[in-house]
Design a binder for these strands. Sequence first.
DNA 1: GGCCAGGGGATTA
DNA 2: TAATCCCATGGC
Length: 310
Amino acid sequence: MERVIQRQVADFHTDHIFDCGQAFRWQRQRDGSYTGIAEGRIVNIRFIPEGEKSQGGTKADSSCFSDNRKRPAPCRGRIVLSNTSEEEFEGFWKKYLDLDRDYGAIKRELSQKDPVMKEAIRWGGGIRLLRQEKWEALLSFLISQNNHIPRIKGCIEALSENFGEKAGQYQGRWWYSLPSPKTLASMEPEDLSICRLGYRAKYLIGTARQVERDGLPALEQMADPAVSYEEAFEYLTRFCGVGPKVASCVLLFSMEKYKSFPLDVWMKRVMERLYGQKTEKEMKAFAENTFGDYGGFAQQYLFYYIRQTG
DNA sequence: GGCCAGGGGATTA
DNA sequence: TAATCCCATGGC
């Protein structure tokens, strides 16, 4: 497999993208790059900020977390994708990484709204909203509820390794895809005990059965631009274990419904501390009025900001 | 509408 | 070591 290099990419940083809680199947490597799997494709992505050498400098790991916590990281540079081809990059990863969207324009527009957002964007300026598979997002955010990010990752790893299919070998280990709705639909909660999902096991199976009954295309069709946010939200919240929070995450991270503004514990904290709002209703209305169709982008900048700076 | 159990582990006290 | 918390939801 060849390597693919994209030069002079702006508004991009792998730490911001893979550490902002939107995806759970990316693993940070010692060199600061990320290896992950999406729709059965395994890839390693390394971001090299402008002005830095790509290979083996003595200044090891220039993009490590401890650095980023102290000061905002530069978000312009080149991306090196390994274990992929030019064809696959053009046909898949480019869209997955949302590289065709002008985040500079989004950042300028949001920065004008208020000083808090401007500061948040300064910290997470390399965020991109990944375009994930619908079923993966649904499964991931069912597991994410009332849960910690490291444990969410562990649950998803266990699910793939035990019940998914082999996708390929890379960097000395096998990678597995997630179990299909069909696979999970035929199981009972106790069959999943090895994955330590707790009470979420019955949600996964219940939802898998509903997806099987309606057909996966019915779920995927919710990503159609012709389907409104409200209609898709309504559809998703009918699934077992899917409430407003999980639905809004699935809509944002896999269905391109960018006005979605997921409110979790952290976001409620941000909205109260930085914007002085008390009720969830107040927060939703504020987001809608202030950020409008860019609500989802705003949410990600704020979420990353509060997680980095406390 | 408010309350609380659901699992399990990470984090904090 | 104990208590608390976690990218919530369903059921009462």
